[in-house]
Amino acid sequence: MEPEDKKLVTVLTRLYAKTKADVVEWQPSEDANLFAVKFSDYTISLVRMLATPTHAESFNLTIANNDGAVIQEMDSSTARDNGFTDMSDLFYRARRHAVDLDGALDDILKDLDDLSDGKS
């Protein structure tokens, strides 16, 4: 493993842990398969490439500077080869946060409760 890959895997591992702890402010984009988190001088983007008949679903993480220039990227296959096997889970957790899925589910549960209360 190259030293820069090792450091990038360390970033991925820490980002994943903070995402699981729900302290990373993932943001949605116009593309439903792309989520990003902004840091002081850099933005990390995570994109899902949908499965095709010849390729499985995959993910790509990109780090860009404030000018928007991509300075590093890693796909889920390379991440897995370097010991980070949770790119898929990271993406789905980022999406859950970015679209406030928990809030949406709470609203739906409340609406469902209101429906059953009205039938009593």
Rank of each mutant, 00 (worst) to 15 (best):
E25I: 09
W26K: 02
L90C: 08
L112A: 14
L101I: 14
V37T: 14
M49F: 04
S40K: 01
D113I: 11
T10D: 12
L109N: 15
S88C: 06
M49H: 05
N65Y: 11
D102N: 07
A17E: 11
K110G: 08
Q72I: 09
H97V: 13
G118D: 01
S58E: 05
L61D: 01
D81W: 08
K119N: 11
N65E: 12
A21T: 06
P3Q: 07
E73P: 07
E2L: 09
E25V: 09
L109Q: 15
G118I: 06
S88P: 01
A17W: 02
V99L: 06
V99P: 05
M49Q: 05
Y16K: 00
I108Y: 12
I44D: 11
E2Q: 07
L105P: 06
S116E: 13
T10S: 14
T10P: 06
L90H: 04
R48S: 06
A36I: 02
S120M: 12
D102V: 00
F84S: 02
L46R: 01
Q27F: 10
N65S: 14
V11S: 06
D107N: 13
R93V: 12
D102R: 00
I44N: 03
I44K: 00
S29P: 00
A17P: 02
S40G: 02
A56G: 10
S76K: 02
L34W: 09
N82F: 13
T13R: 06
K110Y: 11
T19F: 06
L105A: 12
D67K: 09
L34V: 13
D22C: 07
M87S: 13
I44H: 03
M74G: 12
A36E: 10
K6Y: 13
I63N: 10
M49I: 00
